[in-house]
Simulated assay, not measured.
Amino acid sequence: MQKQSELIKQLSDRELMKQVIVTQLLLAGASLVLSLVFFGNMNVWLDLFHMQVYEMAYYGLLTGVIIVIVDLFLMAIFPKTYYDDGGVNERLFHNRSILGIFGLALAAAVSEELLFRGVIQTTFGYVIASVLFAVIHIRYLTKPVLFISVLMVSFYIGYMFDITKNLAVVILAHFTVDFVLGLIIRFRKGGGRVAHRNKR
């Protein structure tokens, strides 16, 4: 874990952003390849997307808002070091435009939910997908509060998918969390408090 942290610190902001983009492309590519392996065709994806306004608002948007509120509460009561991700999210979002934050949050939400809910949860179940989602956030493994927070969020979003069987819902929930927390990082004064789960 320490080695990864040191490697990240050696990257310029531009190189860090390239790494994030490559990671999201790899996750999206893996989800497409694995969907062909496990599902046999791409039609299954179409069955997992339902653009129902009520469902998306209630299970997607509201879920995202609840997660953000709980996150902000926990960040207010725990010492800053408990939520410190090594400054990665600060570097990714602090000087980024709103459109840039939107694009980064959307890319992460789509690629990660396609893989973890669309493929892994659909194939192997809720628990495995939720745990794997948390574990891939390697830099959080040495931060118990941060890791448990990500794990609980993963189970919560996974449960929303279990209820709805709708990838649009979980993508919206994930996007809402990352976009709002990214905006908070971007616009807060004095730096430092929301160093959380946004993007890898």
Rank of each mutant, 00 (worst) to 15 (best):
I148R: 00
F147V: 06
D178W: 06
I148V: 15
V150G: 02
S154P: 07
F147Y: 14
I157S: 00
I171G: 02
L183C: 13
F147W: 11
L183I: 12
I163R: 14
L146N: 05
L172Q: 05
H137Y: 13
F161G: 02
D178H: 10
F175C: 05
I136R: 09
I185F: 00
T176V: 15
Y159H: 11
S149M: 10
L172C: 14
H174I: 06
A168W: 13
T142G: 12
L146S: 11
V177K: 01
R139P: 02
I163E: 14
F147G: 06
L181M: 15
A173N: 08
H174A: 08
F179K: 04
L151K: 07
L141Y: 08
I184K: 03
M160Q: 15
M152N: 04
D178I: 00
I171D: 00
D162H: 13
L151A: 10
I148K: 01
Y156T: 11
T176G: 01
V170M: 09
H174N: 11
V170A: 08
D178A: 12
R139V: 14
F155V: 08
Y156M: 13
R139G: 02
K165R: 15
K143E: 09
T176Q: 05
P144F: 09
L141G: 06
L151N: 07
L181P: 05
P144M: 10
T176A: 10
A168N: 12
M160D: 05
P144V: 08
V150L: 14
K143W: 00
A173T: 04
I157M: 13
L151F: 13
M152K: 00
L151C: 10
I171V: 12
V153Q: 08
V153W: 06
L167C: 09
R139L: 15
A173G: 11
T176D: 05
Y159D: 01
F179H: 05
L146C: 06
A168Q: 10
F155I: 07
V153F: 11
K143I: 03
V145M: 14
H137C: 12
M160V: 07
I138G: 07
H137E: 13
G158T: 08
T142Y: 13
V177I: 14
F175W: 08
P144G: 11
P144K: 11
F161T: 04
L172R: 00
F179N: 00
V150Y: 01
N166L: 09
M160N: 02
I136W: 12
S149C: 11
V180W: 00
L181H: 04
